[in-house]
Simulated assay, not measured.
Amino acid sequence: MRIFITGGSGFIGSHLIPHLLAHGHHVELLTRHPLKAYQKLGHQITTHQQLNDFSDFNGFDAIINLAGEPIANGRWSERKKRRICQSRWKITEHLCELIMASRYPPEVFLSGSAIGYYGDHHTQFIYEDTMAKADDFAYQVCFQWEQIALRASNHTRVCLLRTGLVLGRDGGLMKQLVKPFKCGLGGPIGSGEHYQSWIHIHDMVHAIEYLLTHKTCQGPFNLTAPKPVTNTQLSQSLASHLHRPAFMRVPQFVIQLALGELSEMVLASQRVVPQRLQQAGFTFMFKELDEALTELFQHH
């Protein structure tokens, strides 16, 4: 397949692209820093510095949209919130315009989203058809992002990637999670009872490839492992794999003071299940958190 990717230099993209290349796909990447992209991903890729270079997407088989300002690193100032929105909405809009301008549009458009779409559901299981229970910033970002992507659905098959916490050795959330534990300051946050839905980077990459190649898949998909855990379970599991204690509970008010509005997302309970992915026949390699962490820490 000839695949065009945005946000490909990020944590997920830098795992996905080598996998796609190894499986014989041709990858073209939108990046402001071609040299860095070549250093990170090798010279098999083709780079483009702006979408304005294209008038349509004729000749491409698939578009994968992973672009977006990181959402969970630091407080949300009004300026940061604008960047989070614009970095997702504008590029998705432009991609849709190019798909719709194509005489021979790509067969599939995979567009990023997140489980922040659903809001806080306490201990309830969340499936793809679960109604969103929020009108907070995370929901607004995801809702609008998805609505824009769906504009292309008369022209191509659209899959929405509602992603959980992606666990990998070299980036994503793992870096932030591990820091306090390594200093002996790890532990649950708030009550620790809120559910967190995670996915191992291996399964994330393979799920994206599965959606690319399975032509009956369309609409929203939860990209999370089948067994979400509470924050306390996550903390205890991390502590045991790092051989560190996990007794430094961080009170909820400290999180709220430190993170402001972002704390709503950090403390939300989201027990998300990848129902549609499993119904479509996808098999997870890492269903249990302990299996995932064992694999990630075996080289430490």
Rank of each mutant, 00 (worst) to 15 (best):
L212N: 05
F4I: 07
E28M: 01
L289P: 03
H43L: 02
Q270E: 13
I71C: 06
R75G: 09
C96V: 15
F60R: 05
C96Y: 04
N231Y: 02
Y127G: 01
S77Y: 13
E291Q: 14
D203I: 03
R103F: 02
P106W: 05
E128A: 01
A149V: 04
G190P: 08
F60C: 03
A62I: 04
G24F: 06
I64W: 08
C96K: 04
G10D: 13
P251I: 02
E291V: 03
L150E: 12
T6S: 14
Y139D: 00
L234D: 02
M1R: 09
F286D: 00
Q270D: 06
L51E: 10
A37C: 01
L238D: 03
L293Q: 00
E146G: 01
W145C: 02
G24S: 11
M204N: 10
A114G: 15
V166Q: 09
G13C: 08
M174F: 11
L165W: 12
P220Y: 04
A152F: 09
H241K: 10
L150Q: 14
Y117P: 06
Q275C: 00
R151S: 12
I126Q: 03
H19N: 13
F60M: 06
G7E: 08
G190C: 13
Q233F: 00
T213G: 00
I12M: 11
Y38D: 00
L167P: 06
S77G: 13
K215L: 03
P105Q: 11
E107G: 14
S237K: 09
E295D: 14
G10V: 10
G112S: 15
A114R: 06
R75C: 07
S55T: 15
L259G: 02
F57S: 04
V205Q: 09
H299W: 00
S9P: 05
Q176E: 13
G281S: 04
G190I: 11
H43N: 12
D203G: 07
L259V: 01
E69Y: 14
V273M: 14
A134C: 07
H26F: 01
S111K: 06
Q50N: 14
S111W: 05
S240H: 13
G59T: 07
G7C: 09
Y118K: 12
F11I: 11
G10K: 06
Q236D: 10
E128H: 02
H122R: 13
L51N: 10
R151Y: 03
